[in-house]
Nucleic acid binder design. Structure first.
Lengths: 336, 336
DNA sequence: CTGAAAGCGCTTACAG
DNA sequence: CTGAAAGCGCTTACAG
């Protein structure tokens, strides 16, 4: 391993001068700089990040909170996986590395302690464990932080326009002549109001077009998952077999619902129309006719990186940044 | 941020003594140790990894090579995603953090330089870019390294029993009375012989049971992907419409093949039997009748962590560790 | 059993 | 424009 002292010996300059040349800051004779850079290249010099980090107090590390919990798919999750692929690219080209924050690190450690331990420069909360109280204290820790999904007070969140998408879905159904419409939701938590937001937008959209949503037509599935969608649809349908359309809060729930409907002999969209959410690759590969909303994962990832970089540079950013979700019109909505 | 010097002042001991107490090594009066530990707890002391790393030459960082290339799904990949979830758990409980190695880091950097830069203690190659020459030099770098998929000379690889699975599939078909059997393969590369291994095992299995594989019944799909499976099946079927069974090298190819077969009116398994590979969640969710092989991702991940830890501790490990894949018998094979 | 000294590789003021 | 000194937080021999 070659150090700046080796380069100092090689070139005859002092260590601080080598440092300046390598980092391109401060005034330096251009010949000096060139000589040093040339020597560094020849010697295959690589800075040692630990040393750099120790003296600059910058680890160039971004902590990532991405938990692999029940019913979720961790790295395999349709939204989060894609998000991470892109976020990683953005953040790396800015010279940062990703570091997964974990509580079972080294036999148990809080996120904050893990952050201190690695001295991370910033944090992105992708998917924490439900209502983990530590998430809230993150904002207080003083470490720059963004969130791509959870609405955490004091943390800049980049998230889809759920409400507006709900309104959009309502318009689609009404435009097609539907009046009796069901909603399959999922549990909402304090920090994770996606389901409620979509529902509220949906009701508002219907209302604006003169249709009042009947509370009877709402069913909350137990998880963001197909089995729960199956069960939810069953309950809803047993209560209200007269509905002609359904807005499902996510594609996996929509998929489960379709499974149930198929079981009771209902055809889509002839008997029942349906709109999902996510454009989940898993679902759209196999139910290519399902109309749905595509969350703009690339944009969310880009903005997350951009906002985080901005906060780290000392410039504050808004509490919430909303990103439009695109409606993907396929053929699961019948015109009555 | 509280340092060992703060603890030294607080307790009246010297920094080296604090260090010893914290790390539990060397001889120390148990009362001294307790006092120091107590003080550390009260003060909320967290060691600074950069400083630790600088003096011990151990970063406690494991570099991960996981590329998001064409036709792959990066974090979303069915095998790699699950693998990483588990590997991460194992490696974290041993006190290591994951660090993604990247070439587009900071405007372009080789893997090895990235390793030097962060001073990683070990590397896991999950999924590199096809035939990237740098992968081969990794073994020479002296950094402990394991691979979970690619067979890299000099690097310990943990991988499924592809050959044996091929044999198994052959027995299943023959047992059910099939004689004219096709194979849908995928490109093999120097370091990635999975397709060839499965094929060779398959041929061997047939041969052992007195059936010679007809070269005409082999078709190589262009990618490990459904569209390629569709096209491959088309070619194969146009050439040999008399086959009654197909072994597909992965579930996505199997899925594409089934799409084609459905298009030409063939039913599974009535007209054609099929066996896939991977137990891909995407596929098995939607084609729940597909018999397939499940790679033991948990075991592969565990062994990868175990082997890497072993190598880092100085104990050599075998070139290749094979992990059995489990046959999942569902109902896509018809008994003739 | 405990501590003074030196070092890990880099950077930051501060002189000159 | 360049360098001597000190420091980042920790650990490793080596004394005592």
């Amino acid at each position: 391993m070659v150090t700046i002292y080796d380069l100092a010996k090689l070139t005859g300059f002092s260590a601080p001068t080598i440092s300046k040349a390598l980092n391109g800051n401060g005034k330096l004779n251009s010949k000096t700089r060139e000589k040093i850079l040339e020597a560094a290249r020849k010697a295959g010099y690589q800075p040692n990040m630990a040393a750099k980090s120790l003296s600059t107090k910058q680890s160039k590390l971004i902590g990532v909170i991405l938990e692999d919990q029940t019913m979720m798919r961790g790295f395999e999750h349709p939204l989060f996986g894609g998000l991470m692929n892109r976020f990683r690219k953005e953040i790396e080209s800015a010279g940062y590395d990703l570091l997964f924050l974990s509580k079972n690190f080294n036999g148990g450690m809080s996120y904050i302690n893990h952050c201190k331990y690695r001295d991370v420069d910033g944090i992105i909360v992708v998917n924490p464990v439900d209502d983990d109280p530590e998430i809230f204290s993150l904002a207080q820790s003083g470490i720059p932080c963004v969130s791509t999904n959870e609405l955490i007070p004091g943390v800049c969140t980049i998230v889809s326009e759920n409400f507006e998408s709900g309104e959009y879905a309502a318009r689609e159904f009404v435009k097609a002549g539907h009046k009796k419409i069901g909603f399959l939701g999922a549990p909402s938590r304090q920090t994770s109001p996606a389901s409620i937001e979509r529902f509220e937008g949906f009701k508002k959209g219907l209302c604006d077009l003169g249709i009042e949503f009947d509370d009877d037509c709402y069913e909350e599935c137990e998880f963001w998952h197909e089995t729960a969608g199956f069960e939810g649809m069953k309950k809803l349908f047993n209560r209200r077999s007269d509905i002609t359309a359904i807005f499902a809060v996510c594609d996996t729930i929509a998929y489960g619902a379709m499974q149930y409907l198929a079981e009771v002999g209902k055809k889509i969209p002839d008997d029942i129309s349906i709109i999902g959410f996510d454009d989940d690759a898993i679902v759209s590969d196999f139910k290519p006719f399902l109309s749905t909303f595509r969350q703009n994962r690339e944009k969310i990832a880009e903005l997350s990186a951009e906002m985080l970089l901005q906060i780290m540079s000392g410039v504050p950013c808004p509490d919430v940044v909303r990103v439009p979700a695109e409606f993907i019109s396929r053929s699961s909505v019948k015109v009555l």
